[in-house]
Design a protein around this nucleic acid. Structure first.
Lengths: 112, 112
DNA sequence: TTGAAATTTAACCTGTTGGTTGAAAGTTTG
DNA sequence: CAAACTTTCAACCAACAGGTTAAATTTCAA
């Protein structure tokens, strides 16, 4: 499983995000992925490697063509990490306060 | 407004993600942010600059102490971008802000 | 079989990142 | 004032990122 490090790093480049958007529509060959970009095929090939290592796409070679396919599951970890900012801590702190209130009623938060 | 590039790049480093997690609990001075990390204060200071440029935190100097504060709004664009892939929910910022207001009412940094 | 197509590899260049150390700057405190 | 504290700045370094071009590899097609 790719790390959060590699997923976020892969997402930090605009070319790679554009590639992911393109792959939302359909699987594509490397040459077709590269077509709209003003950079060499080799550069796009490198971007595709980065996306693959991050688990955001997969590549399957059929004949001389390598098909690129979106793997949106890899976004889940990153998304969950962001979600945890809003919700995980709230749950934990609420549970902790409830625990304190139950175990130490006199010193429970909000009573002093 | 910080770009998606800078937000994702800022999130791609584990030290910086850990710092954001720490700031969930409370605003902190630079020295205190640096304390758990096995690197120089200058290195942590640089990480805080990266987070600030990404808009993920803000820094306010009071006296000789610079207080670091989480700015979760910056996650919104990144979250929306991910949401465009259709399968993930955006961070619930309203819930997050309500949580912060409840957990840290009119909190003055450095009071403890 | 010859050649063209699809893609990667290799070598290279330049700019950035993440770390270091030591000095500097601004702020409090004795 | 002088010393201590908090933070950044400056210079430096190794490693990496993102791009290039040219050559190599594999596969298809005439």
């Amino acid at each position: 499983m790719a790390s959060l490090d590699t997923v976020f790093a892969a997402l930090s480049d605009p070319t790679r995000r554009a590639i992911l958007q393109m792959l939302l529509e359909d699987d594509m060959a490397v040459t077709d992925v590269a077509e709209p970009f003003e950079m060499s095929l080799a550069a796009v090939s490198k971007h595709l490697t980065v996306l693959t290592l991050a688990g955001l796409i997969s590549q399957e070679k059929r004949g001389r063509v390598k098909w690129c396919k979106l793997e949106p599951d890899a976004l889940r970890d990153a998304s969950i990490w962001m979600q945890s900012f809003g919700q995980f801590e709230a749950v934990n702190l609420d549970a902790f306060e409830a625990f304190l209130a139950k175990e130490f009623p006199i010193h429970s938060p909000g009573e002093d």
